[in-house]
Structures are given as structure tokens and as C-alpha cells.
Amino acid sequence: MKKSFSQKHLLGIKDLSRDDIELVFETADNFKTVINRPIKKVPSLRDVTVANIFFENSTRTKISFELAQKRLSADVVNFSASASSVSKGETLIDTVKNILSMKVDMVVMRHPSPGACVFLSKHIDASIINAGDGTNEHPTQALLDAYSIREKLGSVKGKKVAIIGDIMHSRVALSNIYCLQKLGAEVMVCGPTTLIPKHIGTLGVKVESDLIKALNWCDVANMLRIQLERQDIKYFPSLREYSMLYGLNKERLDSLKKDIVVMHPGPINRGVEITSDVADSIHSIILDQVENGVAIRMAVMFLLAGRN
């Protein structure tokens, strides 16, 4: 049977099938070759215009998407809410409809409200890629995380992945759980009980509050950032105490009987969830994740644009 991508939009990993994810990975393999040769560009999307609409700050995701678009030869317009008419009271639908009336084919959106992309997809015709919606999902991050694990360890199936830190406020955690489970990995979440959602066990993940136990269990540790900007109340006494109990340092890494792979979606708060000597060590694949991010995003946009 011929392969094809099942979705018109990429709203969340939740909607994807295992075949969709594998197809993104296979396509990303080709794009990884493309971005590592002298001419890093292909002409596929030369008749496609993409709008990057960011209602929240971003460094990596925004640059990564923009590079991916330019390497696919798409035309790109960038929009960030702080410098726009959103501050004059324009609604989300009005903003996007106005942008689309300028003949835009694809929208990449980051928004602080969970479900913003789903809402938008019901009102407009263009393909929408979710670049993070509040605490809900961040699908391209999960895809690049799983792709990096596949690249480093050969496959994702059967691997044990611990997601450690602020699970409650993390869209990366939720998307990663969906993605890794669809690919056959075992997932554990670990963090202070105040930062672990009460019913997360219903997703079929293990829950652990002891960092050392989690590290001893896993093949891969994905360290998340404490999202202070989303925390309206105090969830733990101090960053110092959090770092003592849940920070990954060289001493803890060396005390394990095996080598584990260390990941971080960025931005890193060095010295809080991870120390510099771990972040910059051979165990860390943090910069590989960033490189793979461009290939994964090229693959996603190529597949969405090429649907019939």
C-alpha cells in the first residue's frame, strides 16, 4: 500500500498514527542529508507561503521553523503578537483571517491557550502546525525528541524514557508521552508531586518522585525546564531545593551503573534542572536535538504541503 500522511494539520501527536510518525522520520532522514551538504536547499515549497504566528516567545522553535521553511524554498512571513494589532484588541480569528487573505497557505502558530490551534483549524482553510499551545502539546518537539532517540539508540521501541521536572506545565511532556508510547517506548514521569498532574497515570505512564530511582530505571532522561512563567503559585520551596532533589549533575550521572542519554528541549536553566558539566557532556544530545529539529520540521511541512 502506498504511504501518505493522514492529517491536514499538525495539531498534536494525539491525532497521529504510528505510520504517520514513521513517515515523518523517514522523510526527515532525507532532509538531514540535504541540510548537511553544501547546498542546503530544495525547491519543493517554492509556491507555498507560510506565516509564523507567535503569541508567545520562542528562540529555537521559531528559528528552526524559519530555517526549515527557507530550506524548502517557501516564502515566509513572521508575526509576533507583541508587535502587532493584537495589543489593539484584534481577535485571533480576525488576525489570522487577515493574514490568510494575503494568500498564505500554511500557518505555524504558538499560543498561550491550550487548544488555540484546534480552534483555529475549525475556522480557516490553511494547514496549521502547532508550535506549542499553552500546556497542551508541542508536536514537532516530541517528533524531534523521538527522532533523536531513534538516531542515538537505533530505535525507540522498547526503550525506557524518563521525563523529569515540571510535568504539570509542560507541553513537551504531554506530546512526548503520546509520541513515545505510539512508537512502543516505556515512559516514566518524575518530579515533585506538586508538579505531576493528578491523573497522569491514566495515560499509562509510570510515576516516580525519586530522581535516583528514575535515572536507574531509564535509558534516556529528558530533563524539562521549570516553567516559572506559568507557575502562578509556589509549587516547591526554592529553586535551590529543587536543584538539590531533581537537578541532574555529574555526580548523579556517574553513580549510575550504566550510560544514559541526556536530553533537554531548551531553553536550559543551567544549574537548576541540569548542570553545565552534564549539559555539555558526551551523554548529552541536546545540540543534536536542535539540528534534528530543522530536518523534522522540513519533513512535516513537506508532507502537509504535499497532501492531495
Binding site: K2, K3, S4, E26, N30, V42, P43, G306, N308
Partner: peptide, 23 residues
């Protein structure tokens, strides 16, 4: 060599979706 990214019928064909092969 794979030519999927260079085809002139990308977004124009009614046939199966264009998927790249190994390069």
C-alpha cells in the same frame, strides 16, 4: 539519487502523495 524534492508535479498531482526514497 532521490528526486522527490525536485519534482515539478509536487502539489499538482492527483496520484499518490509524493514520498521521498532513500538517497
Amino acid at each position: 539519487l532521490d528526486i522527490a524534492f525536485y519534482r515539478d508535479d509536487f502539489r499538482r498531482t492527483q496520484d499518490d502523495q509524493i514520498i521521498p526514497s532513500k538517497l
